[in-house]
């Protein structure tokens, strides 16, 4: 039987049902882990760690979830804060792992790929790599806008920034990506 998110959330809050929370995790783990891979330069281990931490924080904060925003938006907000916090700590400690190492990489060119490589899989990785050139907030805004198709108001709510800032982040981020991905060729579908 398929329960709505709200039914599962109520079950977690009122009965401390791990079964209900497990259902929520199963429902959102794939999109969240994919998004975090996109946001961490396709660093799978880091993305999974951040996703795990996001779900744990969500579990702790669930009694305070008021249902004003979609559960997925609420989850993305936690994930975004986790990501920001992680990179801030990493930068402070000058631990240049994952995305920080990749920030100096050149533009992405699909012509260098072997022809046998899965084109669409490469697209995901290249997009993630190109996104590493953007600032954290720009990357998140662009991902939510272009990949998750969130409205600018939703992005503003998730990232807790003014609507005008969201517009600026998206416009400038797109310009940067246009340059970085200029050589990328879409395969014939």
């Amino acid at each position: 039987m398929h329960h709505t998110d709200q039914v599962l959330i109520d079950s977690v809050v009122k009965e401390d049902s791990h079964l209900a929370f497990a259902e929520l995790v199963k429902r959102y783990q794939s999109p969240l882990r994919y998004s975090l891979r996109q946001l961490t330069g396709w660093n799978e281990a880091l993305a999974d760690d951040l996703a795990q931490e996001t779900f744990i924080k969500a579990y702790k904060a669930l009694p305070g979830y008021q249902g004003k925003a979609k559960f997925s938006s609420w989850l993305y907000r936690i994930a975004y804060n986790e990501m920001i916090s992680h990179f801030r700590v990493a930068r402070n400690r000058e631990l240049s792992g994952g995305i920080i190492e990749e920030q100096g990489s050149a533009s992405v060119d699909s012509r260098d790929r072997p022809s046998s490589e899965d084109h669409s899989q490469q697209l995901h990785r290249d997009l993630a790599q190109a996104m590493t050139q953007l600032k954290d907030n720009q990357r998140m805004a662009l991902h939510l806008h272009l990949h998750r198709e969130c409205t600018q108001q939703e992005i503003s709510d998730i990232m807790n920034i003014p609507l005008g800032t969201v517009k600026t982040l998206i416009t400038r981020g797109k310009e940067t990506l246009r340059v970085l991905l200029a050589d990328w060729k879409l395969g014939e579908s």
Binding site: Y34, R37, K174
Partner: peptide, 15 residues
């Protein structure tokens, strides 16, 4: 950019 992301959206893998 829009084409690339549209393509990525439709081919997003299930993890």
């Amino acid at each position: 950019i829009d084409d690339l992301f549209a393509s990525a959206r439709t081919s997003e893998p299930y993890i």
